[in-house]
Structure formats: C-alpha cells, structure tokens
Computed example of a mutant assay.
Amino acid sequence: MTISRRAFVIGLPIFFAGCSVTEYRTDYQNYAAVPHPRFPLAALSPDKIKPELRRREVAYQSSHKAGTVVVDTPERRLYLVLGNGRAMRYGIGVGREGLALRGNATIGRKAEWPSWTPTSNMIARDAGNRKYAGGVPGGLTNPLGARALYLYRGGRDTMFRIHGTNQPQSIGLAMSSGCVRMLNHDVVDLYERVPVGANVVVIQA
C-alpha cells in the first residue's frame, strides 16, 4: 500500500463521521479548555459530541436579519443568523413536551456564571427543588452553566433562558424544564456574539 493510499484509509473514519479534517481540527479548537480564575472549563473532546450537534458555521437561508437567534425546537438546533446565507449552528437541549418555550422574545439581559433559583412551577413539579429555593450561586455545578441569556417579552422576564449546562449528554434531547440548553463552550461563544436586545425566534413543531 502506498503512503498516499495509507493516509487516505486512515482518514476515512473522520470523513465518515461527517466532517472534513479541517472541520475536525476546528472542533478541537472550539472545545478547547477555557481559562477562568475561579471556574476554568476543561477541554471537551469533539468525539463526545455528535457531528451534527457541534458548533459550526453553515449555509442557512433565512428571512431574518443578521444577529437574530433562531431556536429550532424540533431540530434541536440554535442558529445565529450571520447574513449572506450563513449562520452559526449550535446543538441544543430543549424543554420536555408541554414545557418548551412558545412565541418569540428578545434577550433582556445576560449574565456570566449566573446564579439559579428554581421557579415555583419547578418546585411544584419536583419537591426536591425546594432545597434550592434560596438560590444556587454561579459555578461549575450550577444548572445554568457558564452563561445565561434571559428571554424577555414586552419588557418582562418570561422565566425562560438560553443557558449552559453541566449535563452535556442532554444536548440533542427534550428533557429540560423549558429552557434552551447549550454546551458550556457553545454558550460562551454565543454570549460573546449577541447583544442585549437581540431578537429570538422560536420554531415549534
């Protein structure tokens, strides 16, 4: 077997996984360790993320203006419209049936390493949440993860958030209490790209 053919055969698993060598290298960069004085994020191996759920710039035709966040609930994807037929795609976890966000919103505020307090509805559905009623400080074990984008409608908090998660295995599933979950590395990236006031469009089944 020639060297060129051997290299091709070795490379086959990467291409069959749904991405090119260049994309795979970019994935490693996207999910590299993120330093922080108190809450450093460890590197996340792309092999633990399905290729279709990895952060990636993709072709995306949309009538929405650049800067719009599109939450595609059935597809379990979030798209940040870049314009010129392109978008940044992220894999997400969404709310269980009957709990998903409905209707559009705007980003009313943003927070780094946010604290979390369960809503009264969360406590009613799961009495175990009562012990967190006083709030949980931000950190690596906080359910809201590294960043949170708070969704408002008519100037009022909808109580829905786009946030990170310390349960990366939940990405691609419908299991949250209604909020949109992202990998911590991905929500950090989105947080840097979108300002307060950005429009959020939710696509339902």
Rank of each mutant, 00 (worst) to 15 (best):
P46G: 14
S62D: 11
T68S: 03
W113Q: 06
R5N: 15
K110L: 11
T141K: 14
R54A: 05
T165K: 03
G135A: 10
S170C: 03
L80Q: 03
Y31M: 04
N104H: 12
G93K: 05
L144N: 07
V34K: 11
K50T: 08
M175G: 09
A87T: 02
G67Q: 00
P114E: 05
E192G: 11
P13F: 08
D157W: 08
A100D: 13
R96S: 09
V81C: 10
T165S: 02
D126H: 13
T117Y: 12
R147E: 04
E192I: 05
R125G: 02
D47A: 14
V196L: 06
H36S: 12
M88V: 10
G139H: 01
P13I: 09
V202E: 07
G135Q: 10
Y90K: 07
Y152N: 04
G135S: 07
E192Q: 06
H64N: 07
E57C: 01
R76K: 07
Y152S: 09
L78C: 01
I10E: 11
D157G: 08
G172A: 00
R102E: 12
N84K: 10
V180F: 03
M159K: 03
S177E: 14
T2Y: 12
E57D: 12
A43R: 11
I123V: 15
C179T: 02
P37L: 08
L149T: 04
L82C: 10
V136W: 11
G85I: 04
H64M: 09
E75T: 02
A59W: 04
R5E: 14
